[in-house]
Amino acid sequence: MIWLNQVIQGVLLGGYYALIACGLSFMFGVMRVINLAHGDLGILAAFLVWAIVEHSGMSPFLALAIVLPLMGALGWLMQRAMLERSLRAGVLVPLLTTFGLAIVIQNLLFEQFGADTRSLAPAIGDLAFDSWSLGSQIYIGKLAGLIFAVAVVLLGGLQLFLARTGLGRAIRAVAEDPDTAELVGVDSRTVYAAAAAIAVMTVAVGGTFLGMRATFAPYAGPAQLIFAFEAVVIGGIGSMWGTLAGGVALGIAQNLGAQIAPNGFLIAGHAVFLAVLGARVAAGERGLRALFGRAA
């Protein structure tokens, strides 16, 4: 029963990983950029929500509604002011610039908020610890269930958006072939900026839920980036549902690892990630470079 419980908790944790991972996967799919500041943007959003909650006492969900457009604007700005130029300079430069941005965000957060760990859990009342019980030893936290549901809705919504809307189709066209997209009238710069805004908004949702289910601190971003990246690679990049599956696999591996040994949580997650990556390399697959359009 304990093991079954760990698996269930792992699945739910996977929902959180999918939330922080889908923006990373999305941005890579469209712009071929791995944004090394992705996790830090999520933490930034969590701090913004926290600051609003602290000052006004409003619900974090409401505060997130205020923060989301701000984060979207930030994503847009990041694309236009930084990534656009980086992309023109070659494949390695975006890694360098986003890594630099990550350092700037982390240290600005530290400067502004100090080293204390924060949490949004006190602001959501009972939701933070209420649970449904299934049998004697299995409990499903209401928050964990909510996060999983939000992840499913977000991934499904993103997929629907890509398939059914004009902007979604333009994004896919640019992802496949930006030059030709321009020739059929798509303004690829604007599409890129919109995609970056969407990606940053999704990780803002993820960061806010991190704040509700646990604690966060200015330097917590890189760890979230690594989890997100692991979920994406395990699930196979470009597929929205693959990202959820990857997040779930990562969550299960970590929870089972924790059951085996106290330090097993992170080790098992990293090990599964490296094993999947290793298997993919051995199989000669092109890993991350799989076509984005295939699954969208």
Partner: peptide, 29 residues
Amino acid sequence: YRRVAQGIALVPEGRRLFAGMTVEENLLV
């Protein structure tokens, strides 16, 4: 992209369709 709106359209060499998208989606874009 602004020339398209003005009325210039190119059928490029090698066709350059968006291979992962359907015929309908290629036309819709």
